[in-house]
């Protein structure tokens, strides 16, 4: 089938003269990334033969170069203000003092603006809290988590919040299709119109699980360009502390938000993951007397309202003992 795709056929397609059947074979052919590149090669060639008009590229180039210069100057100004000056200060100190005063003032205003324009909802260890956002959306904050949101409502452009920790979102679709964006600390951002999903941004990694609807996830790490992923219900994406992204699928996305009812669901979950959970949820440090314990796995679902209940159940499931002293729990055989 693929051999049928020729340049002539694509030229006809670009000109809007291909049949529905040809469209199907082109779509099929385009599944190969190399063919996508070829598509653009021919699109470019076709466009050159069928120019709508001849744009003035001298004028265009000088516009572009001006834009680039302006941007670079702006960048340079940014780094100059940040980097310490090594040159003799005698001549420039006044200028520098003025610049740093301006910088401090700007930074001060900026910092002030942050706390003026935004408020933060925080939960303590072991606490979960249900919030209703200004747009009617529901958010449940898991223990030891914080959600930063605009103090005076979302405005009419975007709905944006910043999450540290874990939260389950049930986002209302607005009549104006306003996007809702969740930012996390590890370069993951989730963009939705109206849907239900769970975001967890903990020291051990960031994870997004979608229960309903569709979301777009943007992932930007310092080393690579932004990646965009589309998630369908049950899809999960996690990013580990070193920035490695993995995609998976679950048939029971509801499990990701079971914590809202103080319910914990484990499916062959290793003990070291439970240790992370205890740290993130109850601020408990887990010490393993025998390192082999860390590889043991727990399966089961239970409800626990506090750390004590949690520990009792887990110890029973694992058939181990534990001892708690302040914020440290020791597991032993």
């Amino acid at each position: 089938m693929n051999q049928l795709i020729t340049k002539d056929m694509l030229f006809e397609h670009f000109a809007g003269r291909s049949t529905a059947l040809q469209r199907t074979s082109i779509a099929d052919w385009l599944k190969q990334p190399a063919n996508q590149i070829q598509y653009m090669v021919w699109l470019d060639e076709w466009e050159r033969h069928n120019l709508q008009y001849a744009a003035d590229d001298d004028k265009g180039l000088s516009t572009l170069m001006n834009r680039i210069d302006a941007w670079e100057q702006q960048q340079r100004a940014g780094t100059l203000a940040e980097e310490p000056q090594v040159r003799p200060l005698r001549v420039r100190w006044r200028w520098l003092a003025a610049a740093s005063a301006v910088l401090c003032l700007t930074a001060g205003l900026y910092a002030g603006r942050q706390s003026l324009l935004y408020r933060t909802e925080e939960t303590a260890f072991g606490e979960t809290r249900q919030l209703t956002l200004p747009d009617g959306s529901q958010v449940t904050l898991n223990a030891h988590s914080a959600l930063r949101l605009p103090r005076f409502g979302f405005g009419d452009k975007t709905r944006t919040v910043w999450l540290t920790g874990e939260a389950a979102f049930s986002i209302k679709h607005t009549p104006t299709h306003q996007r809702f964006t969740v930012h996390t600390n590890r370069g993951v951002e989730v963009i939705v119109l109206g849907t239900e999903f769970d975001v967890s941004d903990r020291p051990g990694g960031t994870k997004v699980v979608l229960s309903k609807g569709a979301i777009q996830l943007n992932y930007s790490s310092p080393s690579a360009p932004v990646r965009q992923l589309r998630l369908k219900p049950g899809d999960a994406v996690s990013v580990d502390p070193v920035g490695q992204l993995t995609e998976s699928h679950t048939t029971q996305p509801a499990i990701s938000t079971a914590w809202r009812d103080h319910r914990f669901v484990f499916n062959s979950t290793p003990v070291h993951e439970i240790a992370n959970l205890l740290r993130d949820t109850y601020n408990l440090q887990v010490v393993l007397k025998d390192q082999a314990l860390g590889e043991r796995r727990v399966t089961g679902s239970f409800q626990a309202d506090d750390a004590d209940e949690f520990l009792q159940v887990v110890a029973e499931l694992l058939e181990i003992n534990y001892r708690q002293k302040d914020n440290t729990v020791t597991f032993f055989e």
Partner: peptide, 15 residues
């Protein structure tokens, strides 16, 4: 709805 619609406020870059 979920395709070419990435969004972020200019603030996000600063954050």
């Amino acid at each position: 709805t979920c395709f070419t619609q990435p969004s972020t406020s200019p603030m996000a870059a600063c954050i």
